[in-house]
């Protein structure tokens, strides 16, 4: 039992399109820790995050953030507390990169000057200062991902919910931006496909398969040779924070 949990999920089940995507999952995330959700495609990682940021209603189960049920949050408190990096994208019609970051600051009690300063700092961190007036729909996939990460950084919420934050990013920005998020010391729950990145940044991880939690603990304890073989169908081992792959198992 954790002393100060930021996220508490209890017996969560979610069905999508007739398929059970999350099946009786229970987990907790300690305040201030960096928690990774790991698993193969279709394991239910994104569905758990979508439930956390209220884009998906659960069939059954309870989800609490900071001690409050997720459907009981007032909008202003929610905006201050929760920030999410989401995979799905909108049309971004007519929006510049600065607009996208600035929209994330709505409902925060900031003066116009403070709001502009927050946006400028985050844009600089994400290496977007030169591109602020570009149309967001016209930049590369990596630049757009950095824009959305900059939006979350500008808000600096108490809880970062990050769905595949390293998607589209080159190696430099993967390290730069995840280092920055880690440095801030807030609670983070993130999905990763790159297990080396997960091992580098996560204090704890939950391994999922077919919607169920298979194991939870430190990366060293969870990413064992047996779990890599049984869940990811690869032979390999985690050594000194780096994943050594010996090959995929033929199916």
């Amino acid at each position: 039992m954790l002393i100060d949990p930021m996220i508490e999920i209890s017996h969560l089940s979610v069905t999508l399109g007739g398929k059970r995507r999350v099946d009786d999952l229970s987990m907790t995330v300690q305040r201030g820790s960096f928690h990774g959700l790991l698993g193969p495609n279709g394991a239910g990682k994104t569905t758990v995050l979508r439930t956390l940021y209220r884009a998906q209603n659960p069939d059954t189960g309870d989800v609490y953030i900071n001690g409050t049920a997720i459907d009981a949050w007032a909008q202003a408190d929610w905006t201050r507390t929760v920030g999410a990096l989401v995979q799905e994208g909108g049309s971004l019609q007519g929006l510049t990169i600065r607009d996208v970051v600035d929209i994330g600051l709505m409902h925060l009690p900031l003066s116009p000057a403070a709001r502009a300063a927050c946006a400028n700092d985050a844009l600089a961190l994400a290496g977007l200062t030169e591109l602020t007036d570009m149309e967001a729909a016209l930049v590369s996939g990596g630049e757009r991902q950095r824009t959305h990460i900059a939006q979350v950084l500008a808000r600096d919420p108490d809880l970062y919910i990050l769905d595949e934050p390293s998607n589209h990013l080159d190696l430099c920005y993967q390290i730069l931006l995840l280092d920055e998020i880690r440095r801030r010391g807030k609670t983070v729950i993130a999905t990763f496909h790159d297990l080396s990145l997960a091992a580098r940044y996560c204090d704890t991880v939950t391994l999922m398969r077919d919607g169920k939690g298979v194991a939870t603990g430190t990366p060293d304890a969870v990413l064992t040779r047996d779990n890599l073989r049984d869940v990811f169908r690869v032979n390999g081992v985690l050594q000194d924070g780096a994943l050594h792959i010996e090959g995929a198992i033929r199916v």
């Binding site: 979508r50 209220r54 884009a55 949050w73 999410a84 989401v86 799905e88 909108g90 607009d99 409902h107």
Partner: peptide
């Protein structure tokens, strides 16, 4: 107007912002 701005980011991003 700010909620409409947020919807331009996509439904899920707007929901994540509390809309």
């Amino acid at each position: 107007s700010q909620s409409l701005d947020a919807v331009l980011l996509g439904d899920e991003r707007a929901m994540a912002l509390g809309i």
